Computed example of a mutant assay.
Amino acid sequence: MRETRQIVQLWQQGGASVLVTLVRAEGSSYRRPGARLLLGASGEYTGTISGGCLETEVVRKAEWMVRNGAIVERYSTMFDDPADIPFGLGCGGVVDLLLEPANTPECQALMAALEATVAGEDLTVLTWLPRDGRELQRAILDANGNYTFASDRLTEPELVAVRATVLGRDNVNGAPVGIFEERILAPQRLFVLGAGDDAKPLVSMAALLGWRVSVADGRAQLTRWERFPEADRVMTVSKGSYGTLGIRTNDAIVLMTHSYEQDRDLLAAVLPVRPRYLGLLGARHRSSLLMSEVAGMLKWTVAECCAQVYAPVGLDLGGDGPEAIALAVIAEVQASCMGKPGASRRLLPEEVERHVREGGGTRYLPVQCAMDVA
């Protein structure tokens, strides 16, 4: 989401020329569908659509490639015959890139949608990819499934049919062939409840990911903007005003006030919301006492409380100090919110042998990645 913010910022400066979107990936790919790159008026760009292998080549040719309108271009190293492959990747995958002029109503609508998601909206973008003589067309649905934009050439029956498909009434497999569907979500919201010095690296790391961060504490001397310049909100809250935080079920919360009373009262206030992630900083015996007290306050069982709280907070990464703790916490929040276990993905010997055996004579094309040093 930080990358989306940067793309929006470049767009807002004016003069953008080409928007590049990764719309399909097969095999190994550094980025997944939905990754973008925006080319500015002076040749500058922001965003990435590979690990660095493609950007230089794409930026160099982008304006020329869209001189007649939007196109989809394929880049691959999966075949021995490079006759139809315009450029090589160092990753060993196949990617399709949509390149579109920035001055079209469709591109302007997409950029407005990205602005809206950065501001907190969830949207669905449907792009009819240019193919078989058909020009690029686009439609955008809000969180309630209502169209906020549709290309002039899209007919009402077509829009009605694809809307029903995307909303899952007719087809659970998503958009029809030839339509690139994106669910663009608002940035993850993180509430850091506790404004001590150890909260600073946590806020910085969350901001680096593009999350919207709110910092709150009951001690006014700690909740000063200059202490958390990367936060979206810095608030002083008292016991009776926890409701003003506006915490929702899809939010992430890290409780780290270092005050037993504050932690207890905040935990009792936020647990009934059942947020997406709730982590509690502190030693195991301290967290056990807190959970026991809060269970009594809420008339919940201890098991119900434990099922909702990550305590002690953070993955077991090792290390010491505020930065190491912040890294462990951010990693756990990311894994939890993305539905991932957070386990290592390192190669095993038998996996290497299987890939080599099943790959047969397949080889990478003898091309040089733009990131390679001569």
Rank of each mutant, 00 (worst) to 15 (best):
residue 239 K to Q: 15
residue 232 D to N: 15
residue 227 R to K: 08
residue 223 T to V: 12
residue 243 G to H: 14
residue 239 K to F: 14
residue 219 R to M: 03
residue 227 R to E: 02
residue 232 D to K: 13
residue 234 V to Y: 11
residue 221 Q to T: 11
residue 228 F to R: 02
residue 219 R to V: 05
residue 230 E to Q: 13
residue 226 E to A: 10
residue 242 Y to P: 00
residue 219 R to H: 02
residue 227 R to S: 06
residue 224 R to V: 15
residue 231 A to N: 05
residue 223 T to I: 02
residue 223 T to H: 01
residue 227 R to C: 02
residue 246 G to D: 01
residue 237 V to D: 01
residue 226 E to V: 05
residue 243 G to M: 09
residue 244 T to H: 10
residue 231 A to S: 08
residue 235 M to K: 07
residue 244 T to S: 14
residue 227 R to D: 00
residue 229 P to V: 08
residue 237 V to W: 05
residue 221 Q to W: 12
residue 236 T to M: 04
residue 221 Q to H: 14
residue 229 P to C: 09
residue 229 P to M: 10
residue 220 A to L: 07
residue 243 G to Q: 12
residue 227 R to L: 08
residue 229 P to Q: 07
residue 247 I to T: 01
residue 224 R to F: 07
residue 245 L to Q: 03
residue 228 F to W: 04
residue 227 R to F: 04
residue 244 T to Q: 14
residue 245 L to Y: 10
residue 245 L to A: 04
residue 235 M to L: 15
residue 234 V to G: 05
residue 247 I to N: 06
residue 246 G to H: 11
residue 242 Y to N: 06
residue 239 K to R: 15
residue 226 E to S: 11
residue 223 T to N: 01
residue 234 V to E: 07
residue 238 S to R: 06
residue 236 T to R: 04
residue 234 V to S: 07
residue 217 D to A: 01
residue 230 E to G: 00
residue 231 A to R: 06
residue 232 D to W: 13
residue 229 P to I: 07
residue 236 T to S: 04
residue 245 L to K: 03
residue 224 R to L: 15
residue 218 G to I: 06
residue 227 R to A: 10
residue 244 T to Y: 09
residue 231 A to P: 10
residue 233 R to E: 13
residue 227 R to V: 01
residue 236 T to E: 03
residue 220 A to G: 10
residue 232 D to M: 09
residue 224 R to G: 09
residue 233 R to F: 12
residue 219 R to N: 03
residue 245 L to S: 02
residue 225 W to E: 08
residue 244 T to D: 15
residue 231 A to Q: 07
residue 239 K to T: 11
residue 230 E to P: 00
residue 246 G to Q: 10
residue 236 T to N: 07
residue 220 A to P: 06
residue 242 Y to E: 07
residue 242 Y to Q: 09
residue 237 V to K: 09
residue 224 R to I: 14
residue 226 E to P: 03
residue 230 E to W: 04
residue 245 L to I: 05
residue 220 A to V: 04
residue 225 W to Q: 09
residue 218 G to T: 06
residue 243 G to V: 06
residue 225 W to Y: 00
residue 224 R to H: 14
residue 222 L to F: 15
residue 239 K to W: 12
residue 230 E to R: 10
residue 240 G to E: 15
residue 245 L to T: 03
residue 220 A to Q: 11
residue 236 T to I: 03
residue 235 M to F: 10
residue 244 T to L: 12
residue 219 R to F: 05
residue 225 W to S: 08
residue 244 T to V: 13
residue 234 V to M: 11
residue 239 K to G: 11
residue 240 G to Q: 14
